[in-house]
């Protein structure tokens, strides 16, 4: 970053501070996908599968229903955000007895 400051140094510095602050408060978007583990019966997925067949869609092998969470986070550190989201999944977003989760920073 070139800092050619000939006048009004204060306003320039405050601009830089503001830019750094904006970076810190940046909104990061993440998507968490929660799916049922293999071997866990999914009666809702089965019902959807049947309904698709009923609508005339051929060739639907199977349907498994899951959940998507779009989460907005403040901060610029993607690795820290991912670690944070993992904790959120373990503690609330997924029930790891029956569900798996995947995290994407988008």
């Amino acid at each position: 970053m070139g800092l050619l400051v000939y006048g009004e140094p204060h306003s320039c510095l405050s601009g830089l501070t503001a830019a750094l602050k904006a970076l810190e408060n940046r909104i990061m978007k993440a998507r968490v996908i929660v799916t049922l583990k293999n071997g866990v019966l999914d009666p809702q997925g089965k019902a959807i599968e049947g309904a698709l067949g009923g609508l005339g869609f051929d060739g639907v092998g199977s349907v498994r229903q899951g959940k998507v969470f779009d989460v907005e986070l403040t901060g610029a550190d993607a690795a820290a955000a991912k670690a944070n989201l993992e904790q959120m999944c373990e503690k609330l977003l997924a029930n790891t007895v029956i569900e798996n989760y995947a995290i994407e920073i988008v």
């Binding site: 866990v40 019966l41 009666p43 809702q44 007895v97």
Partner: peptide, 17 residues
């Protein structure tokens, strides 16, 4: 109690929906 981890297992949607 299962969600809190005090009991094993989980309770899912009834098989007959």
């Amino acid at each position: 109690l299962t969600e809190a981890g005090l009991l094993p297992g989980a309770l899912m949607r009834n098989a007959g929906l």
